[in-house]
């Protein structure tokens, strides 16, 4: 390096401050150019890529709009709404949602898609759960685990998937906690599936993550065993946040985004998403099943009470 003297240091200092301000103002201008809405969502939903996919389509006709997704845990997504940091919420945890609706934080409940949670397990299926109903399957897993023939892996992280698992145990009238065969990973879906694969264990997953990892050949030991039953239905809802400090521009955009998601185009996009990659859709559009889904949604809320 060149020998330094005070003058050079002063230049270096001035240069770095100018650089700092330059970067700051560039970001600032880019940032203030467009109408911006923020949506908090659960990581599992965001990780499928559906939301970015929908947004890219939406942008075609709304080039001045910037939609920012913030992917966090289910609980955190709603918490952000409560804090007023987001304009919309996309979530799949009915019992939590009901609480925030009651408190007037989120409104305009809109069910836009659904799919099924799946129970996956080792190919050999020691608990023989294939084609059983979800509740019977849980009972069978429990018995087989108690006999030392199987293991169960839980997310253990209060995510939407974890909550559904807890509901299933609850409805089966069983208590797996503190059992040696009940392993809580406390981490995301991918990590949990990998653990299940390594240990030849049963677990509950969302369809998207499972298909993705299965397609990549990372889950050679796991297969989908149960994927039907009302209790496995996973309902995705969109809400408008009341506590957000929005202006009329953003409100307009929020309305048109809601409209777009429920439009024929939007619903078709949802229904076809992932088919090219996984050979089957990851989501089913809500259109045509609105009343039914709303009933099931309410049923979940009541179940959790």
């Amino acid at each position: 390096m060149m020998p330094m003297n005070e003058r050079k240091v002063k230049y270096a200092l001035a240069l770095s401050i100018i650089l700092l301000m330059g970067i700051a103002s560039t970001y600032y201008f880019l940032y203030n150019q467009s109408v911006k809405i923020r949506i908090s969502t659960t990581t599992s939903l965001y990780a499928t890529g559906l939301l970015d996919y929908l947004y890219d389509e939406f942008k075609e006709n709304h080039s001045n709009v910037v939609v920012q997704f913030i992917a966090v845990g289910s609980g955190a997504a709603l918490k952000l709404a409560e804090q007023g940091d987001v304009d919309m919420v996309f979530v799949h945890a009915p019992n939590l949602e009901a609480d925030y609706i009651k408190r007037g934080i989120i409104t305009n409940h809109t069910i836009f898609a659904y799919n099924y949670f799946i129970i996956v397990g080792p190919k050999s299926d020691p608990a023989h759960i294939a084609n059983l109903t979800p509740i019977e399957a849980m009972k069978s897993i429990y018995n087989s685990c108690e006999n030392g023939q199987a293991l169960f892996i839980s997310r253990g992280d209060q995510s939407g998937t974890h909550q559904r698992e807890l509901l299933l145990w609850n409805l089966s009238g069983l208590n797996p906690f503190n059992k040696s065969w009940y392993i809580e990973t406390g981490s995301g879906m991918s990590e949990t599936l990998l653990v299940a694969n390594e240990k030849n264990a049963y677990t509950i997953s969302d369809i998207g993550t499972f298909l993705k990892l299965k397609g990549d050949g990372r889950l050679p030991n796991l297969v989908k065993l149960v994927d039907k039953g009302k209790i496995l239905i996973n309902i995705y809802s969109a809400y408008i946040v009341e506590t957000a400090k929005t202006n009329s521009d953003t409100q307009k955009v929020i309305k048109s985004l809601m409209k777009f998601i429920l439009s024929d185009t939007g619903q078709e996009l949802i229904g076809s998403f992932g088919v090219d990659k996984y050979g089957q859709p990851l989501f089913y559009p809500a259109k045509g099943h609105e009343d039914e889904l709303r009933e099931i949604w309410q049923w979940f809320v009541d179940l959790a009470k």
Binding site: E191, D216, R218
Partner: peptide, 8 residues
């Protein structure tokens, strides 16, 4: 994010 997507 990519880890949670399974894109290792």
């Amino acid at each position: 994010l990519e880890v949670s997507k399974g894109n290792f």
